[in-house]
């Protein structure tokens, strides 16, 4: 395993009209780590994610994933990159007209057209079970699932292609504390078993404490700090202090 970062962002600038969201933003995600990204509402966490996965074209800046510049990549290379990462969107973004199993099969069918139907079903089923659902849930439609189950189904889809890199956008938002803790454990387990690198946007202080190796703090249009949580606590930035040393932050610290 090399020390080359899996994702490397340099001088990123994003803006919507006059509203500059990111300016001169630098960030590295290392191999095999879980990087948490935090920031107040409107600091552009989701925009950052969207720029990395190519849904938002940045004004300027370099983004490299697996050592390849995504802005210079050809359509072919882009497709090849896409099969090496999985994305879990905030609300799951499951295709509502397909069953859970079919949702998981979508990326498989797209990239590997000659896999036979039986194996596809088996793969879908074990991915679904691996994500903490039951095999009986496979033929259900997303509208028949609870919020937590939908997140797990979406996780199963994002793991369909055995990605090396996983993007999670607020995976535990809207889950009850027990469900959220179970989801954290699941992510940690899968990370160990599958050797994933995880880019995680979250507001959940418990998640940050329990599973993140490093935390990047977005404020003032850039990453103001990116370090393990203990080091962040020592930093003298008003937002960081308020975030981690506020009442909720202290409770999570005591629990972690």
């Amino acid at each position: 395993m090399s020390d080359e970062p899996i994702i490397s962002i340099r001088g990123l600038r994003n803006s919507f009209g006059d509203n500059v969201v990111h300016e001169n933003l630098d960030l590295d995600v290392r191999q095999g780590e879980i990087l948490g990204v935090v920031g107040g509402s409107g600091t552009g966490k989701s925009v950052l994610l969207r720029s990395i996965i190519g849904l938002q074209e940045p004004d300027t800046g370099e983004i490299s994933i697996f050592g390849e510049r995504i802005d210079c990549a050809t359509a072919e290379e882009n497709l090849d990159l896409r099969r090496r990462w999985g994305v879990l969107f905030q609300n799951g973004a499951l295709f509502s007209t397909l069953t859970v199993a079919e949702n998981v099969q979508v990326p498989l069918r797209e990239f590997y057209k000659n896999i036979d139907e039986d194996l596809l079903c088996e793969i879908a089923t074990f991915k679904i079970v691996m994500s903490g659902l039951k095999a009986e849930d496979a033929p259900k439609y997303p509208s028949e699932l609870s919020g937590g189950m939908r997140k797990r189904a979406a996780l199963a889809r994002s793991l369909a292609l055995d990605p090396l890199l996983l993007f999670l956008d607020e995976p535990t938002a809207g889950l009850d504390p027990i469900g959220a803790a179970a989801f954290d454990n699941l992510i940690l387990e899968l990370k160990e078993a599958l050797g994933l690198t995880i880019f995680l946007i979250t507001h959940d202080l418990d998640t940050l404490h329990t599973i993140c190796d490093r935390v990047a703090v977005l404020a003032d249009r850039k990453v103001i700090a990116c370090a393990p949580i203990e080091e962040l606590l020592a930093l003298d930035h008003p937002w960081i202090q308020e975030y981690f040393n506020g009442p909720r932050g202290r409770a999570a610290l005591a629990a972690g």
Binding site: T125, A135, P139
Partner: peptide, 12 residues
């Protein structure tokens, strides 16, 4: 990991 995920229940 996959042996844990092996669930014999009918899924289709």
């Amino acid at each position: 990991q996959v042996s844990i995920a092996d669930d014999p229940a009918k899924s289709f």
